[in-house]
Design a protein around this nucleic acid. Sequence first.
DNA 1: GGGAAATTTCAAAGCGCTTTGACAACCAAC
DNA 2: GTTGGTTGTCAAAGCGCTTTGAAATTTCCC
Lengths: 342, 342
Amino acid sequence: MNLKQLSELLGLSQTTVSRALNGYPEVNEATRERVLQAVKETGYRPNKAAQRLATGKAGSIGLVMPTAPGHQSDVHFGEFLAGLGEESVRHDFHFVIMPSDPDDEVAALRRLAISGNVDALFVAYMRGHDPRIPMLKSLSMPYVVHGRSFGSEPDYPFLDIDNEGAFYDATRLLLQLGHTRFALMNGPMHLDFAIRRKNGVISALAERGLTLDEDCMSHALMTDEQGLLAMERFLQLPNRPTAILCSSTVLALGAIRAVNQAGLRLGEDISLIAHDDVLPLLKPESFSVPLTTTRSSLRAAGARIAQRLIGTVKQAGPFPDQELWKTELIVRASTGPAPQQL
Amino acid sequence: MNLKQLSELLGLSQTTVSRALNGYPEVNEATRERVLQAVKETGYRPNKAAQRLATGKAGSIGLVMPTAPGHQSDVHFGEFLAGLGEESVRHDFHFVIMPSDPDDEVAALRRLAISGNVDALFVAYMRGHDPRIPMLKSLSMPYVVHGRSFGSEPDYPFLDIDNEGAFYDATRLLLQLGHTRFALMNGPMHLDFAIRRKNGVISALAERGLTLDEDCMSHALMTDEQGLLAMERFLQLPNRPTAILCSSTVLALGAIRAVNQAGLRLGEDISLIAHDDVLPLLKPESFSVPLTTTRSSLRAAGARIAQRLIGTVKQAGPFPDQELWKTELIVRASTGPAPQQL
DNA sequence: GGGAAATTTCAAAGCGCTTTGACAACCAAC
DNA sequence: GTTGGTTGTCAAAGCGCTTTGAAATTTCCC
């Protein structure tokens, strides 16, 4: 069943039927009703490819999924996708995923943009001075950046959380509890959020005249394995840290295993605050010692970005171009007063 | 730049240019060279929407991502996606994701199929007597099922691992080590793989005249939290099991925490074998006590399914319709002889 | 050199939709 | 009863590609 057949069935022109379907005002309400009824009965569905060709709109948003043989498939990515998905299905959009080697993202993004398969782009895993930003600007296609790019003029549309503020607050809490020896277990060094979180820690420490040693910083993929390794290193330092800031609950998982293995008690010998992306798989409150966290839902961010992108494509009102979400600092049992000096 | 302009530029007809581009034989090699050269210089890219309309092929495969507000976004899903992605990018395919409430998958799948956005479908998370199978059969669109559907005639294209065999073998290993009290920590009861794994355990036990108590079975989402809860229950049983079979390394994570908390030693007081989907996030060899596992790579399965789907769409030779992959049983330190009777 | 066969190219007809510009049909107002 | 403004409907022209069927050109063989 196509439009032509449907219109013949109804004794109307294709124009009228098309207009009735797409909510144009210049159609008699009675006629529209008839058309809608016929659609129900015949199960007519407009051909997407033809719609696309005619309108130039694809009804989909595109994104690049970093993946390579052997590359980590990131839990955080799946969670974000879920948010994006929930929102797009609500608007009858779908999304197109272009897998790409993480080293080749600019090219992948360009391919996706010119493929004509998408109306808008979303990008994540931002780095400092990210080359994708100028590229996106040069494209005439709506986009939203998840995160920001340190070092680039922030004049592009983004949604980010206040990473620096989150880790500043977390650090201050630990300072107030009397801790003086800190360590930071961070994501890969080149990623924007990692830079900002580090800055947050450093500036809070600086207020008390403290610094963060090179030894007390780790930059790695956010896996439990890396968390374990990093923590083991920290614990072997001559003057080992008592306060740990951790960029993910996944890292925390490994870190805590290391703490346990060393026979230390979390929340007493070692205090730890992790950033919580609200992964349903890893609830900080159900850790054996519930985790103090800075919280911001990755899924909610995904949904919001989808909303902005789709709204822009549909020209449904203006959206704020730049959003910075505050995180919540939630205190649980993994933080406690600094242990007495030995 | 479109085809018309390009052909005018070359002084050729659209037909010839189109044929040259698409590798048809009825084009002079010299002409083809000229065309290809012009494409390079002008950066011409055929309009996808028009191609689709003309050919009826979308160049993409579709899948339904189960997601709902509050629903688990599954680590296993992301890993599978990575495999699918690696392969599809290799063939210039992309995939379209339709998010859907897990209770509404049949409808979502149908929407996706008739949306005209995809050439082929992939489905996973199969259940017993899965209603999607008859639905897929009724569609005239290629598809591959990941897993199988217990109770349905296996006359549809699938790729599955030998779940029953894996758990049969794992159980036999534990039996040989002298264990007699078993527990099974499984995925959700309605899922096909869970049914088959359970059968594998039961039939291995039956050979020794043993049975699996209702108490010693848990069916739950495969999260570490559920693993913890299930194991805590097992450990409180009057005659507690010494051998645990576990459907995922994620479940094992929680289970092991419970074992530790109870002051028991893994591989001595309790033996555990988990199924390992080769999640890069959770390597069984880097657990504090390395895990004995049945292994089969989810990512490889994703890649293989993409290969079959794309091959079918492109009519590139026949593929086996049904594949059953064996798993590997890899023995590490989490299994040991049954402890002496008390 | 002529005719048949093979090779190369082309004009035109779709694919199924949207949208433009024109045209009836109707109403109110003078 | 004509004018002017709405309303509702339509025919036809795209959108940019593929593909059919025919025509033009070249090649081959006797």
